[in-house]
Design a binder for these strands. Sequence first.
DNA 1: TCGGATTACGTGCACCGTAATGATC
DNA 2: GATCATTACGGTGCACGTAATCCGA
Lengths: 282, 282
Amino acid sequence: MIEIHLFEQLVAFADHGTLSAAAEELHISQPALSRSMQRLEDELDVKLFDRQKSRLTLNENGELTVQYARNLLLQESSMIDQIRAFDRKKRTISLGSCAPVLVPEIVSLLSQLYEGMTISAEITGDPNLLNQLQEGRYQLAILHEKPDEEEFCSCPVASEHLYVFLPPAHPLADADGVCLKDLDGQTFLLYSQIGFWDGLCRRKMPNARFLMQQEIEVLGELVANSALPAFTTDYVMRQSDYKSDRVAVPILDEEANVTYYCACVKSERARFRPVFRHYRKD
Amino acid sequence: MIEIHLFEQLVAFADHGTLSAAAEELHISQPALSRSMQRLEDELDVKLFDRQKSRLTLNENGELTVQYARNLLLQESSMIDQIRAFDRKKRTISLGSCAPVLVPEIVSLLSQLYEGMTISAEITGDPNLLNQLQEGRYQLAILHEKPDEEEFCSCPVASEHLYVFLPPAHPLADADGVCLKDLDGQTFLLYSQIGFWDGLCRRKMPNARFLMQQEIEVLGELVANSALPAFTTDYVMRQSDYKSDRVAVPILDEEANVTYYCACVKSERARFRPVFRHYRKD
DNA sequence: TCGGATTACGTGCACCGTAATGATC
DNA sequence: GATCATTACGGTGCACGTAATCCGA
């Protein structure tokens, strides 16, 4: 049994060429490293270096050992990472959501239901969200379509309807409704963290320009202080106390009216029963 | 970076079930092992055990870590073995011989020609000797057939002729020669380390009985003090000063007259040129 | 003369073992 | 009471750093 730090030091020497440089990198003294390398040779019972009095170089054995050592070090660190990840995964619930609106509410709910667990949430426009749920990247997902009942357990949790958010002077401000394709070609203010809505907009309005905003406050300022059209939803309008003179014109496209489903893989149904029960009660 | 002995100790605990038993196995005290396991948890920053005051058991993290640790330990020890083998191989010449007679002479020659190298020699009846030469198990081989010139470098080094070694009273003792098949069915004294000769005898005399002798001295005693037929060769008779009243009757089979070739793989031709030069001179 | 490796030497602390304590059966 | 784990405590060996030495460009 040879301690792994000796191999680590050998690799440092291989990377730096001299004991002095490697010792500095390793934050130990040069004599300490020199002795370590002697000890390594001793324990392996194999000469690893050519010693030319004032120059230490790896011989053929040394080169081979360095190769193996790199592997071993890699394996150990990856092993440690995996153990930590495995542990962390057991104490965190990862939520992937196709849309932003429900996230704060569900995170709060999960925090209450699963005390002591860490809740992590990501909003993603990735259409593979369901695959990622299956693969374990997420334990829970918020989807805008009901997933296959064979493999997933799900229940509807909310619905949301999209509106275009126009200044009163906009030509369409008085319309009862509008289709996305009728808005194509215009320039919009758009929040960047809107999950699947982003893909929908770009698909339906391939010629529109979107001025992406990372910060929700900045977007609010721009909506208040420009004539650029933006979007909003009934869910947002219901929740926020944000007042504006803008007009919300409903989008008539079928896809603009979504029902969200909360889902987990079948095998974790029991674990997340409290979540589904909560939403069925409502 | 976590030292590998901690993982070794963890595996010992997994194998023995209690700290006390594992500590005994590891030749350390129980408290030392207890502290090591605490340190391992500490450095991983992951809980590995369920602690029930008087009983320590692996939790899920622990089980996973043990699995990984076994791998890591295996990899390290195999790595060390390979490094040592690589080193040893550079300082030893392995000779594989299909027959015993030439071995002492060639070992002595190699010792002189390659000072400082360790010479190891094996006598083998394995018909795959040539493959083993190719695969690096041996660097030199003594064969009884000339190998393919495309892949191997070789030169003839000696010839040997087989005799059956009979007491004067034996019915065949006066014959000028005899075929092996004519000897089939009899019982012979046979030395065990005779390489390919063994296979030859068994093939040509499928119904004979062979009383195998591990010790050459014992064989000599039996030859001197029994009437059982044995074998010898011209090479043996030339070299040894062993006197006997037995009669050596030549074997007439073609295969009983062999020329030995010393061979190495083509890529090592330069290295072994001194050996070939020595035999060409003769 | 400087940079690099090894040797010499004194020291601290990390880890060990013994002993004591706590807990469970 | 026996077994097993943890905590306490005192001792020690080992690896470290500093300093000295040697060597070569």
